[in-house]
Simulated assay, not measured.
Amino acid sequence: MKAVVSVKTEMKASTNKKRQPFSVWKQMKRSWQLYVLLTLPVLYVLVFKYYPMYGAQIAFKDYIASKGITGSEWVGLKHFIRFFNSYEFGKLMKNTLIISVYSLLAGIPFPILLALSLNYVKNRLFKKTVQMITYAPHFISVVVLVGIILELLDPRKGIVNLLLGKLGVEPINFMAVPEYFSSIYVWSGIWQNVGFSCIVYLAALAGVDPAQHEAAVIDGANKFQRMRHIDLPSIIPVMMILLILNTGNILDLGFEKVLLMQNSLNARTSEVIDTFVYKVGLASQAMNYSYSTAINLFKSVVGLILLLTVNQIARKTKQESLW
């Protein structure tokens, strides 16, 4: 009897497996609108993210445009070794890490503080006004932002030096002092993005159960205590996810803002990997595509390793992780 039951069970399982593709197809057909909406994002990722990976192989070749990718000579790790042994390697890594880590550490608390403050504002008009004022700089283009920075810090007519002159301080050419570059870059970035970055934390705070705040008020907790014991624990998972993602991009500063702020006087601390890749691959007459691709590929591999490492540490410490 048991043997008959087991045979019937196996037969049902096999028929279910056979019917599964049809049921999946029916589900897709039933929700075809969602799959149509998904088509464009998937195509975007495939065309602009995955397809360009085919060209990454020129990092291992002496690429010549007339021969194409497949016709160029294979040289292995030649360009990577050249970069590691170059004079610029140490300086580029140091400058990139200083600015990236500085941005990461300085940029963490301000969106959280802004979100916590806005969360307790009762006046809707004041809250919306503050949100608009803090969000607006995010939509300023990099060129305009750098132009504003240069005007504010101009040694002759900049408002910063005019204020310093009122205090009896001699004008300072901030953009000509290498030691000031990282601070100018980081704090201008915080000013530009703090409002937009706090949106994620505001969304997390909106999901907090109001009953917890009501119970805390009944127990006599003030706003600071409610922030500390209710709000902060609720946004820690979001903070961990953002920290993991930002750590993966720690070598990816982008070259636009740095290049626009850069000059011959501050190049000692402003030359980073992205600006070097741009100059080697596109701005120089040699247009060494293979060398610049190898540097970018190295940067991507380091970012992936950091992402996996930090994510694993978060899992080991029982914190929120990407997977």
Rank of each mutant, 00 (worst) to 15 (best):
K18C: 06
F298K: 02
L282K: 15
I244Q: 04
V101E: 04
I273V: 15
L297R: 02
N296V: 09
E179V: 11
G168A: 07
E320W: 14
E170R: 12
Y87G: 03
V272A: 07
I241T: 13
S290G: 14
L46V: 13
S100P: 00
D209I: 00
L307N: 05
K257N: 02
P178D: 06
Q57C: 07
T9M: 08
S183K: 08
I149G: 03
K257H: 08
Q319G: 15
L113D: 01
K18I: 07
F181S: 02
K67E: 14
G168Y: 06
K316T: 01
P171E: 07
A203N: 02
Q225M: 10
S182M: 06
L104Q: 04
I184V: 10
L105S: 04
Y50N: 11
V4S: 06
K91V: 13
R268F: 13
L322I: 15
S284D: 03
V47M: 14
T39D: 03
L92H: 00
P171Q: 08
T309S: 15
R30N: 12
N246D: 14
Y180P: 00
V130D: 01
S103M: 07
A56N: 14
S66T: 15
G168L: 07
I140W: 01
Y50R: 09
F298M: 15
Q319N: 15
S284I: 13
L265P: 01
A56M: 14
N246W: 11
F298Q: 03
R82T: 10
I140K: 09
G90F: 10
L38G: 10
Y102W: 12
K8M: 12
Y180S: 04
S31D: 15
P109R: 09
Y289F: 15
M240W: 09
L245A: 11
K166N: 11
M287K: 15
P171V: 07
Q312V: 11
T70D: 14
F89V: 00
S72G: 11
L113Y: 01
P109G: 09
S188F: 09
W25S: 08
S234L: 10
S264Q: 08
P52I: 03
C198P: 01
K91P: 00
V45D: 10
P21S: 05
K18W: 10
F126R: 02
G90V: 10
S264C: 05
D252A: 14
N296H: 06
